[in-house]
């Protein structure tokens, strides 16, 4: 790790100003669970760190209005435990509490979590000329393609990159049409989460639709009655403390034993948090049974392009969605 300067900002404006002066080799740091980790791995090599964890203006959780509003600096553990979130949006709470460990959830922020970078081992463990990686070193190639690809994405891949988007919380937010609030040198703006994450295409190094110097200040989630009948179902290689092989965020509105409206997003399978629109359409009007859900769930993988060892994610992903539909439907309203 090379040396860097460390600066603690007290306001967003200070942070943005500091970033502007520091230039391209600056990074904002909040919890640091992802950035500091990648610095230790030599993947991130900032010259300046601007600490935004202490911005009081970004810590709030407001569940009173028309939208749930989460300050970007709120800790994952705190949002997971928020009583309103737990009661009315179990999907959001579960997506946080099933991520990482309590130690890391006590450090990481809900804003920073949106920016967690892929766990692709060729990306993480390849700095210093070990593995080529177009995300880490544009143009160097992709070692995962033709390599050990059990963990790689099957949706949204390109010939340059198959790295999975690692998050759980972003998947749940995607299902609920969250909006990402940003501020930066050009002032504040909002971005629907669907537009926040970029497909790899030929530029897998560009992952987020953020401008240089921008900070996530908050996340807004439109309230929906479907929140109570929701779940975040996560299948992984061990019972806890692991990233998703497949996951499904499902929220349902049920009328007369039939699904009226479904929100479905999936994780562990896509190069970004993946909204399963076709599955949502197919679920509507159907009873929330496992059989009906499974048929609809397979549609989520219609365009999937599996590699050598990850084809199982198509079936597992569909079953994960189907189980999530059943779990969500059984939730008391």
């Amino acid at each position: 790790m090379r040396q860097f300067t460390y600066t603690r900002a007290r306001t967003t404006a200070e942070a943005v100003t500091a970033f502007g002066r520091a230039g391209r080799e600056a990074r904002y740091i909040a919890g640091g669970t992802s950035l500091y980790d990648l610095m230790k791995l030599g993947v991130e090599r900032p010259l300046h760190l601007i600490d935004i964890a202490d911005l009081d203006e970004m810590r709030h959780v407001d569940t009173a209005g028309e939208r749930l509003v989460f300050g970007a600096g709120a800790l994952m553990a705190d949002v997971a435990e928020n009583p309103v979130v737990r009661r009315d949006y179990p999907m959001l709470s579960e997506s946080l509490s099933k991520a990482a460990s309590q130690q890391l959830r006590n450090m990481a922020t809900v804003g920073g979590n949106l920016l967690q970078r892929t766990r692709c081992p060729y990306f993480r463990h390849g700095a210093g000329g070990i593995y080529p990686c177009n995300k880490r070193e544009p143009g160097s190639g992709c070692a995962a393609i033709g390599g050990l690809d059990r963990g790689q994405a099957v949706l949204g891949t390109s010939s340059a990159c198959t790295a999975v988007s690692p998050g759980d919380w972003p998947v749940a937010l995607t299902a609920l049409d969250a909006v990402v609030e940003l501020t930066g040198p050009a002032g504040p703006r909002s971005l629907p989460i669907a537009d926040f994450y970029l497909l790899p295409g030929s530029t897998p190094d560009r992952e987020f639709a953020m401008l240089p110097g921008e900070i996530i200040t908050g996340i807004a989630v439109p309230k929906t009655a479907a929140g109570r009948r929701s779940t975040y179902h996560k299948i992984r290689d061990r019972e806890s403390y692991a990233f998703a092989l497949t996951s499904a965020a499902v929220a349902l509105t049920i009328d007369g034993g039939r699904i009226r409206k479904a929100h479905v997003a999936i994780g562990g399978v896509g190069t970004r948090p993946w909204r399963a629109r076709q599955t949502e359409v197919l679920l509507e009007g159907r009873p929330p049974t496992r059989e009906a859900a499974l048929a609809a769930a397979h549609a989520a993988f219609a365009g999937a392009r599996p590699g050598k060892e990850n084809a199982f994610k198509l079936e597992l992903g569909a079953r994960t969605i189907a189980d999530a539909v059943v779990i969500a439907a059984e939730r008391k309203v």
Partner: peptide, 19 residues
């Protein structure tokens, strides 16, 4: 292809956890 262990950390080399 690389003669290298890809999962060379405790996140990817899956050890049993309490749960």
């Amino acid at each position: 292809r690389f003669g290298r262990i890809l999962n060379n950390d405790l996140a990817d080399y899956v050890l049993p956890v309490n749960a």
